[in-house]
Amino acid sequence: MVRAFQFSSLMGIFFWTSHVLAFVAKQNVPNAGGFVLLETGYLALQFGIYAFLLSLIYRAEI
């Protein structure tokens, strides 16, 4: 489970920088701080669920 969360965190950070930071830099966002906070929470939830599902798919058979 730890490796799934490590992988998901790495992919989430990459996606966050290319999606959230790039959008705020390119567009005129009235409440940039609120937008970054909202998108960060959404992506953390999304990639947390992804990591959980990855850990279920690739769990070791005992």
Rank of each mutant, 00 (worst) to 15 (best):
residue 1 M to F: 06
residue 1 M to E: 07
residue 1 M to H: 03
residue 2 V to R: 01
residue 2 V to A: 09
residue 2 V to D: 08
residue 3 R to P: 05
residue 3 R to I: 14
residue 3 R to F: 14
residue 4 A to E: 00
residue 4 A to R: 00
residue 4 A to N: 01
residue 5 F to Y: 15
residue 5 F to Q: 01
residue 5 F to P: 03
residue 6 Q to C: 10
residue 6 Q to R: 02
residue 6 Q to D: 01
residue 7 F to T: 15
residue 7 F to Q: 10
residue 7 F to E: 13
residue 9 S to W: 08
residue 10 L to H: 06
residue 10 L to T: 15
residue 10 L to C: 08
residue 10 L to N: 09
residue 11 M to N: 04
residue 11 M to I: 13
residue 12 G to Y: 01
residue 13 I to L: 12
residue 13 I to V: 15
residue 14 F to S: 13
residue 14 F to H: 02
residue 14 F to Y: 11
residue 15 F to S: 10
residue 15 F to P: 02
residue 16 W to H: 15
residue 16 W to S: 13
residue 16 W to N: 05
residue 16 W to D: 03
residue 17 T to A: 14
residue 17 T to F: 10
residue 18 S to R: 10
residue 18 S to M: 08
residue 18 S to L: 04
residue 18 S to F: 09
residue 19 H to A: 14
residue 19 H to K: 06
residue 19 H to W: 11
residue 19 H to Q: 10
residue 19 H to D: 14
residue 20 V to G: 00
residue 23 F to P: 00
residue 23 F to M: 06
residue 24 V to M: 01
residue 24 V to D: 03
residue 24 V to L: 02
residue 25 A to S: 14
residue 26 K to N: 13
residue 27 Q to N: 12
residue 28 N to I: 03
residue 28 N to M: 03
residue 29 V to M: 06
residue 30 P to D: 05
residue 30 P to R: 02
residue 30 P to L: 11
residue 31 N to H: 13
residue 32 A to R: 12
residue 33 G to H: 02
residue 33 G to D: 07
residue 33 G to E: 05
residue 34 G to P: 01
residue 34 G to N: 12
residue 35 F to Q: 10
residue 35 F to G: 01
residue 36 V to T: 13
residue 37 L to A: 13
residue 39 E to G: 01
residue 39 E to K: 12
residue 40 T to V: 07
residue 40 T to L: 07
residue 40 T to F: 05
residue 40 T to I: 07
residue 41 G to A: 09
residue 42 Y to S: 14
residue 42 Y to K: 11
residue 43 L to D: 07
residue 43 L to S: 11
residue 45 L to R: 05
residue 45 L to F: 12
residue 47 F to C: 01
residue 48 G to Q: 03
residue 50 Y to E: 04
residue 51 A to N: 02
residue 51 A to V: 06
residue 51 A to E: 02
residue 52 F to H: 09
residue 54 L to Q: 03
residue 55 S to T: 14
residue 56 L to M: 13
residue 57 I to Q: 04
residue 57 I to V: 14
residue 57 I to L: 14
residue 58 Y to F: 14
residue 59 R to Q: 13
residue 59 R to C: 12
residue 59 R to M: 08
residue 60 A to V: 15
residue 61 E to W: 08
